[in-house]
């Protein structure tokens, strides 16, 4: 991994110029691409680490559920409370369930969950793999005949790719419950009517693209975090840096992928 700083022979650190930074950026993009290609090569070649995949899915998916659930509930609640005054001005309070559900399922749910996921899981993977790297545990695995890439990277990337869509689905459902509570804070609507109104304006073109893009969010968060951790250096300082850059780049990639997904969806539908 290359940093935006260079260490001189006497040990002092100075920042690189913009041209060098650009060079470093392109080298890093090339390295991540190579890392991604290696992932696709390794993922189809036996032996498959199913036990490690299940373990990682548990850690990454199930253990993130409480945080995602609380966030989802708050998103639904806040979105409804914020929407109410404006909708009431137009006499369109009955449209709140439809409006909030479309906002949550198309955009707010996937993006908010992915950003939180990048913060929690991305930093965790980055720090874990980086500490394994700097303490030479990865080298030890190689020596003992275990493929560390397959065991550590493939399982984690697979787990993030598979678990994020599930977390988003759960968060969407919980957000809608939050929205129901929000609607009932100042109004009164039955649970049945609320969900009828929620589904009355949803179509496959709202749900399917939103779920498909979460696979890409999960994959990008996983691959960046693993790359940063797997290629960490400079001792304990590198561990913190790997965790930090995993979160920053992972979150940024979520928004970039989201922008591309929105453009593609509007082209198709």
């Amino acid at each position: 991994m290359i940093n935006n700083e260079e260490i001189t022979t006497n040990g002092s650190i100075f920042p690189l110029g913009w041209l060098d930074s650009l060079r470093v950026f392109f080298i890093e993009v090339g390295e991540i691409s190579r890392f991604t290609l290696r992932f696709f090569k390794e993922v189809f070649i036996p032996r498959y680490e199913f036990k490690a995949l299940v373990k990682q899915s548990y850690i990454i998916g199930y253990k993130s559920l409480p945080l995602i659930a609380i966030t989802g509930l708050i998103i639904g609640l806040v979105l409804t409370i914020q929407a109410r005054p404006t909708m009431a001005q137009f006499g369109a309070e009955s449209w709140i369930p439809s409006m909030v559900s479309i906002s949550i399922i198309r955009e707010m749910g996937p993006v908010m969950v992915a950003v939180i996921f990048a913060g929690k899981v991305g930093s965790g993977i980055g720090a874990e793999l980086a500490s394994m790297k700097v303490t030479e545990q990865i080298d030890a695995m190689e020596v003992s005949g275990i493929n560390p890439f397959k065991y550590l990277v493939v399982t984690r990337v697979m787990a993030t790719t598979l678990m994020l869509p599930m977390l988003v689905t759960a968060a969407d459902a919980i957000s809608l419950v939050g929205a129901y509570v929000g609607v009932n804070l100042k109004g009164s609507i039955s649970f049945h009517l609320f969900f009828l109104q929620v589904f009355s304006n949803l179509s496959f073109s709202d749900v399917i693209p939103a779920i498909i893009k979460t696979f890409f969010f999960g994959f990008s968060i996983g691959i960046v975090s693993c790359y940063k951790g797997y290629n960490a250096n400079r001792g304990t300082e590198g561990v913190g840096e790997a965790a930090n850059s995993a979160v920053v780049i992972g979150s940024l990639l979520v928004f970039i992928i989201d922008m591309i997904a929105v453009q593609l969806t509007s082209l198709i539908y």
């Binding site: 299940v54 899915s57 548990y58 998916g61 199930y62 559920l65 599930m166 977390l167 689905t169 759960a170 969407d172 459902a173 589904f199 949803l202 749900v207 779920i211």
Partner: peptide, 15 residues
């Protein structure tokens, strides 16, 4: 984990 996966898949299918 199985419970979590099953519940979310069911939620998705119901939706």
């Amino acid at each position: 984990l199985g419970l979590f996966v099953t519940v979310t898949v069911i939620l998705f299918i119901v939706g």
